[in-house]
Amino acid sequence: MTKTDTTDAGPPPGAPAPRGRTRSGLGRALLGAAGIAAFLTLWEAVPRLGLVSDRYLPPATEVLGVLAQRATTPGFWAAVGDTLHGWALGLAIAFAAAVVLGFTLGALPRVRAFTTSTVDFLRPIPSVALIPLAVLLYGTDIRSTLLLVVYACFWLIYIQVLYGVADVDPVAEQTARSYGLGRLARIRYVVWPTTLPYLMTGLRLAAAVALILSITAQLIIGTPGIGQEIAIAQSSNAVAYVYALIVATGILGVLINMGVRVLERRVLRWHTSVRGEATA
């Protein structure tokens, strides 16, 4: 996507695409499965062979066993639920605020000019700087988590919305004007479709960051969730359980990434960057 030229050259006719495609589906899946198998085998073998003490790295089977066993307890699922709750709520608040503010200020460049310096200063401030304040104000309440998640995610999405609004093709905008489309209609048919891919990029980045900060808050502040479970397991030296929880957060992360990607594909089905990626 990064350097498509204005000349629409495309791949040469009959480039080796057919070959790659037939092999890719099954072959890639097999290779990927082999990779996972090798990873698990290595993880199993290293502590079993005594290369690393199993006090530090319990074998894969043990960790996955602990995970499977904990997954039958309601406490585990409550922690997962708490984590997802903070994640989803924080993301939703940040998304709503960023979209409303982004579109409003994007449409009002004169007003926006007054906000740029403040935004440029606030945006790079790491949201973890707010941790002590969150502790003082909200303690271990979910609002502590929300403060961190919303602060971090808001900027990610907001900036993408501004990029998107700025990216509106002037020709399309002028065409719409010349056909007498009103302000609302132009937003609906010109600005919104242009901004959507940017918005989805912002959402994709924010979804991952929201999980990171949701778990950070639980780990550091002690709001309920997987992060807090990990901190407890670590302080009670339950090594296998620490690993099991880390695996659980990884699975959660993969599911969230996949979910956002599916959403992005669906929303942007018409958009070339997604089509391009799907065939690549």
Partner: peptide, 12 residues
């Protein structure tokens, strides 16, 4: 010939 298994294409 671009070899795509069943779908081989003879370009030249």
């Amino acid at each position: 010939i671009y070899n795509g298994g069943a779908s081989a294409v003879e370009a030249v």
